[in-house]
Nucleic acid binder design. Structure first.
Lengths: 245, 245
DNA sequence: AGGGGCAGGTAACAACGTGTAACGAACCGC
DNA sequence: GCGGTTCGTTACACGTTGTTACCTGCCCCT
């Protein structure tokens, strides 16, 4: 397969340079990035197979970026940190990192991890370049993630709002797994600037779910796709198939 | 008790073969399965006591399968993974796995875990026998465990609450066997960890039984499906047939 | 047979979770 | 700006579930 393209995100120029150099010697295409905007630029520019993300970026926590990227796009992420403490590890995984490695790391180990994550990603989607260009099918519905279009079983196109789309994506990524309102809120918080709503627990999720139901459920009053798990949250309870296009 | 029947689910033929061989040498009946459809076939075929499920299946994440199986059926599951990272363990538990073990594992340890999970399952199955069947019929009624729908003899769908459904399941799994209130409470305590309710014995069960009777008995005042065993508890006293679908 | 105690049935209630209509603010394309 | 859309908030309705209280009927004891 193609040479993997890696994005090295670290705010320390020395560390960044060192990693990029080592990775390039190891036969990969390594691109440096110092902050979030550079990451986004690279992602927009072209395909990126994997992101190596430092946990401690000066201005903004790498964890936040990770969570954000995870929900916007489907790029595999390996978190890198100077802290090997378990809670850090947990945090990394919680925001959706595919793996975690502590600095200073054994170069061989890093390569091994990268290979593992890449092969995993590749296995789950034969598509190497953009895992974001996918078509999901569930219960007769078709969702084209690339065009952001959703077709009903009758072939009629249905208009979903941005937020509704994000919600659907979150569920498509986790079929049959109950998601709590907190998890859903985290998944929806892709805009990132909303730091305030950390605790602001309103009924927004419920209403949003209701609206999505109104659009994709045959009988919204008796949902069979987006079921309520009372006292827990919501479950996307039909099978999902994902294809590359 | 009978020789345990295990289902080994791993997409790597070598690993699968190895595990099956080892488990067979260890006195169990081990069946190999490479993907979800093979799992379902085995479950439909006959009784399976426990599933050893690899986290990383090529086509579909083992976690999803686990969540799905847990959602629809009640087979104990041990997740197996090449990744010993804690987050994997967490994910496994979150989707309802009974235990988690990392590859490469100590064979003795695996056996111990299997034994532990099985004995746990069996203990609780003295109360609620774990089945893999999906459709139950009794006295004209049909209960589709997969869709959580219950149809009256007239073909009318009846809405059962979550708790009522759980209660019905407990009885369907134990027809003609009187269940004490403690046993019923234990069966309903999906969370299982509530040690507090040992003494907190209210009338909740009675009320719940009454409500279920109100929905499934022709004449709730003179129940002939869900009979009271005075001084003992309640008995589901009609025959139940269970089918796979 | 009569009476007391007790197990169980159930109506009423309260606490809580969820669905949803309505409202208004923010945003967007023109 | 202006109309339309999106989206969070709010208020209210409703379903679920445990608790309580009261009633009934059964069983046992004398």
């Amino acid at each position: 397969m193609a040479i993997p393209r890696l994005l090295v995100v670290d705010d320390d120029p020395d560390m960044r340079q060192m990693m990029v150099q080592f990775l390039r010697q190891s036969g990969t295409i390594a691109l440096p990035a110092a902050n979030e905007s550079e990451v986004l630029k690279h992602l927009a520019d072209g395909r990126v197979d994997l992101i190596l993300l430092d946990v401690m970026l000066g201005d903004e926590s790498g964890l936040n970026i990770c969570a954000k990227l995870r929900h916007e796009q489907d790029v595999p992420i390996i978190m890198v940190s100077a802290l090997s403490a378990d809670h850090q590890r947990m945090s990394g995984y919680e925001v959706g990192a595919d793996d975690y490695i502590a600095k200073p790391f054994n170069p061989e180990l890093l390569l091994a991890r990268i290979k593992a994550v890449l092969s995993r990603a590749r296995r789950s989607s034969s598509l190497v370049h953009r895992r974001t260009t996918k078509t999901f099918r569930f219960d007769g519905w078709t969702y084209d993630a690339k065009r952001d279009e959703i077709l009903s079983p009758d072939g009629v196109q249905v208009a979903l709002s941005k937020r509704e789309t994000a919600l659907l994506k979150a569920f498509l990524a986790n079929p049959h797994i109950p998601l709590t309102r907190e998890e859903i809120a985290a998944a929806l918080d892709v805009t990132g600037d909303n730091a305030h709503n950390a605790d602001a627990e309103g009924r927004a999720i419920d209403v949003l779910v209701g609206r999505l139901r109104g659009k994709i459920e045959r009988n919204p009053k008796d949902p069979h796709i987006l079921r309520t798990e009372r006292g827990v949250g919501y479950v996307f309870s039909v099978d999902v198939t994902a294809e590359d296009t």
